[in-house]
Write a protein that binds this DNA or RNA. Structure first.
Lengths: 230, 230
DNA sequence: TTTAAGTATTAAGTATGACATAATAAAATT
DNA sequence: AATTTTATTATGTCATACTTAATACTTAAA
């Protein structure tokens, strides 16, 4: 497999040092806030140059495993799994295919998150959602392009899920969503049919079932799905 | 430039050089396989040391933007947004809450991916799925713990989605799933009720609708959902 | 002429030493 | 005691030299 080949070829010194350091952190069961030995000590104890140590430490930093400060050295941080992802999610450096796929993942998430919503939704949430859609333009035809309402409404849904990882994930994906919608990756489809509206989704969330909500959301996103399948 | 705004916070030189390099790649509209100037040239043209260039290039490499070879230099590669995520997804360094949330995301994805499946599924896929479940133990009670069958079956579903990003994402999340299931994060629920089985899911995928599949998958995952909500 | 073996070259990988900078600790001043 | 000044320290950056492996080139054998 690809990964096996790579691990054999992983013979650069920095790769091994990186692995060593990660293992070291695990072994010592270091907690958030603990500090690790300084670069020169690590260099000496592993028998490599400071250059190599620094490159390996930089990788750990990119993983969000450590945070380094000038005099204090490096300290363990609570790894923010999506933190480092942010940069590489720059739409400009992603291929069109990848962008499409990320957009698809959004659709999958929003259709599939119904149960999380029903588990946590409160009357206050409903009220907030109603407030958001209050001033929406009546026409559902171009609702797809009312970006700000879309972001506010769907963003609120993610927050209702109470899943911080999911929330963070979607906030990372937002620029991609935005880029894809504005791009010419998909030809715009102006479908005369009226799909489930935000207001209807709220009504389902208030009075209906997860199953109904999934179908409602699927319908609501119909235009996006249509655009994907060309 | 645009990068100047960000660089207000990016106070280390490497941060700015990294941004500069990304912008450079974007400006020149470099394609996969194209090579970028060598380290010394970049160092000279940006007026920084080779050390800084190297650290910045290493970040690009971690993002999967470039791949470096000894004599050839660095070449553009198709960015692998989740590549670098893999290491930081080590369950041992994630908090229990984050682990739970990642597990939830799995449930969301699998319930929500129905439309992608129906869009792409072929007769060969169905055949393969049937082959997988052929030797499954009959009892549905402990199917939750038949890890290998679970991985094979659900992994195949992801592949049917034809969404490479999604596939990669789940392959990253797999260790987390595995860890969470085996951990004591959730108390095991042995629910006597019979939920939708793999065989039934295949039948739906062959003859039914996305809506039915979503409900089937939701039922199939019922035990997991129950375990989440405590 | 073709091909295989050997060599030179090149650019990344690694090592070493030095200085700059900023955060902290220690000392001195009020 | 509180505040300012100074010294220390570990990371950040720079410069240079050497090592290694991949590529291009040359040469010798078929």
């Amino acid at each position: 497999m690809h990964s096996v080949f790579k691990s054999i070829n992983n013979h650069t010194l920095v790769d091994r040092v990186e692995a060593n350091l990660i293992e070291l952190l695990h072994q010592r069961k270091l907690k958030v806030g603990d500090s690790i030995p300084k670069e020169l000590e690590l260099a000496e104890s592993l028998g490599v140059s400071r250059t190599v140590i620094r490159e390996a430490l930089m990788r750990l930093r990119m993983m969000g495993l450590i945070d380094t400060k000038k005099k204090k050295g490096a300290v363990i941080t609570s790894p923010d799994i999506f933190g480092n992802l942010a940069k590489s999610l720059n739409p400009y450096i992603l291929s069109d295919d990848t962008l499409k796929e990320i957009f698809e993942i959004r659709l999958v998430l929003e259709v599939g998150m119904a149960d999380l919503l029903f588990r946590n939704v409160t009357k206050e949430d409903i009220k907030e959602l109603k407030q958001i859609v209050k001033n929406e333009p009546a026409s559902t035809k171009n609702q797809m392009f009312e970006a700000s309402y879309e972001i506010a409404f769907h963003g609120k849904l993610y927050r209702i899920s109470h899943n911080e990882t999911l929330i963070k994930f979607q906030s990372l994906l937002l620029p991609v969503f935005d880029y894809v919608e504005k791009s010419s990756l998909f030809k715009p489809i102006v479908n005369p049919k009226k799909f489930t509206s935000h207001k209807q989704l709220i009504h389902i969330l208030e009075n209906g079932t997860p199953e109904e909500f999934r179908n409602g959301m699927r319908s609501h996103l119909e235009n996006h799905f249509l655009r994907m399948n060309d």
